[in-house]
Design a binder for these strands. Structure first.
Lengths: 191, 191
DNA sequence: TCGTTTACAATACGTTCGTATTGTAAACAT
DNA sequence: ATGTTTACAATACGAACGTATTGTAAACGA
């Protein structure tokens, strides 16, 4: 009934409904109609805010990345020493919900067919590696190969998150494995 | 026109066509009709070999896992010492083609919606971890936490494969990073 | 030899997809 | 006051989906 609506916020709501659907029933079941139902709006309104389905998926993927970034940002308390911040960042990744992990895999798999998604994920991955590499340098000095160590740590965190999602390992087991690797890089990796 | 046909082989061909499509254009574009066209057969023949689309995807996922297993098996020469075999296994994973990696992510993302796929991937992941853990024990003795180290190594290998697929790092950079981690576990990790 | 089975194609069917079009009522600009 | 936007719903539409049904010709068992 009213008029002016926050356009970006509405788009965000719709994209978030798409993400929920993707996680719950797979990317293949994300259709305009299902998204509209999930968001409790009409099919026509989805079209009003997104010219095409691809644009909707693009925003959903972007928001999924942003969700991860803000989960990481929320986990690191700024006044901690670098070694603690590094651990907190990796722990945040391990603790990601099933939602973020599943959606991430789904979009990553679409990378081959969608150059825009490819760029999004490539840049996101590079940025994450660079950020972790900086923390590694701060925590360990410049004697270590920071980028290589960052890739190792991010790989371990990702694999632990996957294993946790699949129900293979418990949260505490994941933390132990992460700390095992961290203890190789820096002494005193206690929380 | 003739009669007796190797049923399993035919099913394999069709599933492989589905995999190619999945890699090239994403899981969402894997439809009965497209698979039939990719395999150069009629839509009806796909139905003749698979009662349902889900059965087709199930076999495709199973074959994708088998492909990875045989790539790994082909990479390890049996008479090598364990430390060399371990490195060869991980290198084989890093060197996986874009196809296997992308399809793996796509199926893993369908895990939430498909309990059968969930079991397939959970069991596959556990088996891989156990196999690598055994190699770790053989190579380093029982003083190390073999399963934890196996998860770390598999995580690193997977992340390197992903980074290579996205075009972030070169093959040689990936090998260097893998060897960096391996050198922590065992002395003399040279090829 | 003849009926059954099998490999495969063709097509029909109801559903659902993405998109286009149209309608309506509320807010704004003038 | 009025005409243009804007938020939203409804529906129409052709294409493509998964599946069911039917047809045909070749190989087999009897």
């Amino acid at each position: 009934m009213p008029k002016r609506v926050d356009h970006d916020a509405r788009r965000g709501e719709i994209a978030r409904a798409a993400l929920r659907l993707c996680v719950r029933e797979g990317l293949a079941s994300v259709t305009i109609g299902r998204v509209a139902a999930e968001a409790s709006i009409s099919k026509g309104l989805v079209q009003h805010y997104f010219p095409t389905k691809e644009a909707l998926l693009q925003l959903a993927a972007t928001m999924q990345r942003r969700d991860i970034e803000s989960a990481v940002a929320a986990a690191v308390h700024l006044d901690e020493p670098p070694r603690t911040a590094l651990r907190q960042v990796l722990l945040a990744l391990v603790n990601l919900g099933t939602e973020q992990i599943l959606a991430g895999h789904a979009f990553l798999a679409s990378t081959a067919a969608n150059p825009q998604l490819h760029r999004l994920y490539r840049e996101g991955s590079s940025a994450a590696t660079a950020a972790v590499a900086r923390l590694v340098t701060e925590a360990c000095g410049s004697a270590v190969a920071a980028e290589a160590e960052a890739r190792i740590l991010l790989g371990v965190a990702g694999a632990l998150a996957d294993a946790r999602m699949l129900g293979e390992i418990s949260h505490s087991a994941a933390v132990e494995i992460l700390d095992l690797q961290l203890s190789r890089l820096i002494a005193d990796s206690a929380s």
